[in-house]
């Protein structure tokens, strides 16, 4: 069991205006690991994808609650989980395929591909009718002189 060194949880309604708030908050929290600009950009992008999925797909007809849980784990690991109580994903393997989307033509179907290439670890747990939790981890490389 990996030790949890710090944790913060944020709840917000599934409004698209909260996408920028969620990724900025995640980046602020991750900043305590002294990430590079590139690592921060990767975290912002991956969180943006996960939160957008919850907003677009989990609650297609009404607003619901999205829970963003941020953690610092032992060994310089940043973890974020995005949880919803929405419609769920019937086929997670299929949803993770590049270009697969059930969205309209403003969606590229590349969300999971980007989460997978920018983060070290991606886990998707989903139950149709119950909701989805996407958990992402990224190890932040220690830098010279950085306090850890």
């Amino acid at each position: 069991m990996t030790a949890i060194l710090n944790q913060a949880t944020l709840l917000f309604p599934s409004k698209s205006s909260n996408e920028s708030f969620a990724r900025a908050t995640a980046a602020c929290f991750a900043a305590q690991l002294d990430p590079t600009l590139e690592e921060l950009g990767d975290i912002k992008t991956a969180v943006s994808e996960a939160v957008t999925n919850a907003i677009v797909h989990a609650y297609p007809r009404e607003l619901g609650v999205v829970t963003l849980r941020l953690r610092i784990l032992e060994g310089g690991v940043f973890e974020v989980s995005v949880k919803d109580k929405g419609v769920g994903i019937p086929d997670v393997e299929r949803a993770r395929q590049p270009l697969y989307t059930t969205g309209d033509d403003s969606r590229s179907g590349m969300g999971f591909t980007i989460m997978e290439s920018f983060m070290d670890w991606v886990r998707v747990r989903s139950l149709p009718g119950k909701g989805t939790t996407v958990t992402l981890r990224k190890r932040i490389t220690p830098r010279m002189g950085g306090a850890r």
């Binding site: 920028s20 992008t45 943006s48 994808e49 957008t52 403003s106 969606r107 590229s108 590349m110």
Partner: peptide, 13 residues
């Protein structure tokens, strides 16, 4: 200042 996969759809269009 920032772009996620939404930008891919914008450019492909």
């Amino acid at each position: 200042g920032f772009m996620d996969s939404s930008g891919i759809a914008v450019l492909l269009r």
